[in-house]
């Protein structure tokens, strides 16, 4: 069991939850956890934003009854959580200057990825996109990592008006991205390097058993929950 340490609203409909408990099954940034909630049959898969030896941080948006229920949970509540699910990002391919591109609630997995890349003496840059100023979160946290951070809002209410693809830096060695499908596709069209993309799908189990989230790739059928959620740019069939 994992215990909620904090659960707070950090942007419009967006919450940050910190959980204490075993984190030993988490092996790579970009993996997710799957949370059992009382009164809901299926677990809720949420990507890991950050973790250390005994704490996991997740960031989630209230998009339905399950996540609304989650947002009301109080500190001290114990949750049944499956950890370390999915393949996660492979940092060995990044080169010296990888570009991290997050859109909306696709931003969280970029945070621990940035930390991992920094720990490997690489110089990541982050490009974060949101719809509007009220949606922005973790600006300070990314800045505090001491890396180059650029932010865009679709309506121009904060930072650069436009999309993440409008504010790419000049050069980068590789890219990692997570966000809505249209953004992922635009990122693939714009980027000149290879890269890794994290996908979402409705899941049954979250650990590869039910075949509920299978997608076709150039490298064969893959389960988003087990063989993903991270896929290579080269293998994606749009």
């Amino acid at each position: 069991m994992h215990k909620i340490i904090s659960n707070k609203n950090i942007a419009k409909d967006v919450f940050e939850m910190k959980l204490s408990g075993d984190t030993s099954k988490i092996t790579a940034p970009g993996q997710f956890i799957n949370i059992k909630l009382d009164g809901f049959y299926l677990r809720r898969p949420i990507s890991v934003c950050d973790y250390n030896s005994d704490t996991i941080t997740i960031i989630y948006k209230t998009v339905g009854k399950g996540t609304e229920y989650m947002s009301d949970l109080k500190s001290g509540t114990e949750l049944d959580v499956l950890c370390g699910l999915g393949n996660g990002f492979d940092t060995s391919k990044s080169g010296d200057k990888p570009l991290l591109i997050g859109g909306g609630v696709g931003v969280p997995p970029m945070y621990n990825l940035a930390k991992k890349l920094i720990s490997e003496n690489k110089k990541p840059a982050a490009v974060l996109g949101f719809n509007t100023a009220d949606d922005i979160f973790y600006e300070k946290e990314f800045m505090d990592l001491g890396i180059e951070v650029k932010i865009s809002t679709a309506d121009g209410s904060a930072h650069n008006k436009g999309f993440v693809t409008d504010i790419f830096p000049e050069d980068y060695t590789y890219f990692y991205t997570c966000g809505p499908i249209p953004m992922l596709k635009a990122v693939c069209d714009k980027t000149k390097t290879s890269g890794q993309l994290s996908f979402e799908e409705r899941m049954g189990c979250g650990f590869g058993a039910c075949m509920g989230c299978t997608c076709k790739t150039k490298y064969g059928d893959k389960r988003i929950c087990k063989d993903g959620p991270v896929l290579l740019k080269e293998e994606i069939i749009w």
Binding site: F40, Y41, G204
Partner: peptide
């Protein structure tokens, strides 16, 4: 067999639908 297109899973009260 690849199976059906996704979404293949829907949650229900005390159960689920699958169309794998």
């Amino acid at each position: 067999r690849f199976g059906n297109e996704t979404p293949r899973i829907a949650e229900c009260t005390s159960g689920m639908l699958n169309s794998v």
